[in-house]
Design a protein around this nucleic acid. Structure first.
Lengths: 233, 233
DNA sequence: CATTGATTGAAACATGGGTTTGAAACGCAC
DNA sequence: GTGCGTTTCAAACCCATGTTTCAATCAATG
C-alpha cells in the first residue's frame, strides 16, 4: 500500500509536475493543494509551474484534460464496438452501463477515476471557462453517445427521461468514486458490512442501480398517492 | 425573482449573521465565501463573526446544523407517520422516497436544499470533526430510519444492497440539488428540453429513478457477459 | 447618575496563497 | 570556446484571508 505512484527523477520538469499534480489533485482536490506542495513532490522549483504552464489553473486544466481525453476516447470506442456488434439487435444495457462505470473504479491507475469525478464535481458546482471548455470538448460527445445507446436499449423510455437518468447515473458514480476514504459513510451505516473501498461491491451496486433506474417505466407514475394500474407486461 | 431573502435590519447581529451566511453558503459554498462578504451582507462588523461564533468554521457549523436538524426532524416524523399508517401492510415506497427527496427541491426556502446538499458533499469529500459530529447526530439516525423503511418495502432485497442503494439515491439528489444554475449540464445535453431548474421534472425523475433502483433485483446479475436465466416472476 | 458587563467599530496583524523577478546554470549550435 | 535561447533557482512580492486588538458605545443595574 502506501504511496502508489511517485515521480520519475529522470523525467523533465513539466512531466514531473503533471504526475505530481495528478496525484495530489486526486487525493485532496485542486483548491486544497498548494503550488508548493506540488513542486515539493515533483522536486522542482516553485516557479516551474508558472514557467511551464502559465498558472496553477492552467496546470490543473492540463492535468484534467489529459486523463479525461484518454478515458473518454477509450469509452467511446468501446461503446461503438458494442453497438456495432449488436448489429440489428440491441446492445446489452448492463454491459453499456458497465463500460461507463468501470473507468471510475478501475484497479489500474487508482487516481484516474477520482480525478474525473473531482472534475465533474468542480464543473457542476462551480463552473468556469476552463471546465466548460473541457466538458464541451470531451464530455458532451461522450454523454450524447451514451444517451443514444440508451435509446437503443430502452426504446419505451421517453428521450427526455433518458437525459435525466443519464445525469443521475453520473451523479451516483461520481460521488461514489470521489468519496474520501475517511468519510466512508456507507461503512458507518452498514456497521462495516460494506464500504466504498470495496470496488467489486461498488461496481455491482452501481450497475444494478443504474440499469434499474434507466429502464424504469414512466417516472410520473411514481407521484405519491397515485394508483398504479398494472401495465401490459 | 432576484434576491429572495434579505436581512432583517432589526434583528440582533448573531441572527443577521446566520441568515446572511445561510444565503451565501448556499449560493457559493463555504470555502468560496469570505467572512467579509458575510458581514457586509449582514451589515455588521467583521469582528462580529469571531465574537459571536468563535470562528468562521463554527459559524458554518451553526448554519448547517440549524437547517439540517430541522429538516431531519420533519422527515423523521413524516416517515414515522407513514410507517404507522401502513400498519401491518407495507408503506408506499414512492411516498417514502418522495418524503426524502422533497426537502431538497421544495419551493419554500429555496436555500435549504442546496445547503443540505452542500453539507453532505463537504462531509463526503473532505470530512472533518465538525461535519462528522453533525452527521453522527442528525444524518445517521435519518439514514437508519429510511433504510429500515426500505426493508419493509423491499423485503426481497438484501440489506447490504439497501445501504448501497440508499447512498446512491442520496448521491443523485444531492448532486442534482447542489448543481450551479450556470452549469445545468442537463439543459446543455437535452438542448434546452429539460433543466435542473425545473423542480417538478427533477422530482419526477429522481423519484422514478430511485424507486426503480431500490427495488432492482440482485445487483450481481448485471455483471457484463453473464447470461441471465429468467427468474420466477 | 455612576458603574459594569456586553457589544460594536476601525484598524492592524499574521499567514498562506499564487505569482514575479533577475541572476545563475545549462545545453547546444556555430 | 563563444554566444544564445532555455531552464532552474532563491528570494521577494502582492494580496486576500481569518483573526485579534483595544478603545468607543451601549444597556441595564444599583
Amino acid at each position: 500500500m502506501g504511496l502508489k505512484r511517485t515521480v520519475d527523477p529522470e523525467a523533465p520538469a513539466a512531466a514531473r509536475l503533471l504526475t505530481a499534480a495528478e496525484v495530489l489533485f486526486a487525493r485532496h482536490g485542486v483548491e486544497a493543494t498548494s503550488v508548493r506542495q506540488i513542486t515539493a513532490m515533483a522536486q522542482v522549483n516553485v516557479a516551474s509551474v508558472n514557467y511551464h504552464f502559465g498558472s496553477k489553473d492552467d496546470l490543473a486544466a492540463a492535468v484534467f484534460e489529459r486523463t479525461i481525453a484518454r478515458v473518454s476516447r477509450e469509452r467511446l470506442s468501446a461503446l461503438d464496438r458494442m453497438v456495432a456488434e449488436a448489429g440489428e439487435g440491441v446492445p446489452d444495457l448492463a454491459a453499456v452501463v458497465s463500460s461507463f462505470i468501470e473507468p471510475y473504479l478501475g484497479d489500474g491507475n487508482e487516481d484516474q477515476g477520482v480525478l474525473m469525478a473531482r472534475f465533474i464535481l468542480m464543473h457542476r458546482l462551480t463552473p468556469d471557462d476552463a471546465t466548460r471548455r473541457i466538458v464541451a470538448e470531451h464530455l458532451n460527445p461522450l454523454a450524447t453517445a451514451y444517451v443514444a445507446a440508451f435509446r437503443l436499449c430502452c426504446p419505451d423510455v421517453p428521450v427526455g427521461d433518458l437525459f435525466w437518468r443519464y445525469m443521475l447515473m453520473v451523479s451516483s458514480v461520481v460521488l461514489t468514486s470521489a468519496e474520501d476514504r475517511d468519510a466512508d459513510r456507507l461503512a458507518t451505516l452498514s456497521q462495516g458490512a460494506t464500504s466504498v473501498a470495496d470496488r467489486s461491491a461498488a461496481r455491482d451496486a452501481l450497475v444494478g442501480f443504474a440499469v434499474a433506474g434507466l429502464t424504469a417505466r414512466d417516472a410520473a407514475r411514481f407521484v405519491p398517492g397515485t394508483i398504479e394500474p398494472e401495465p401490459d407486461v
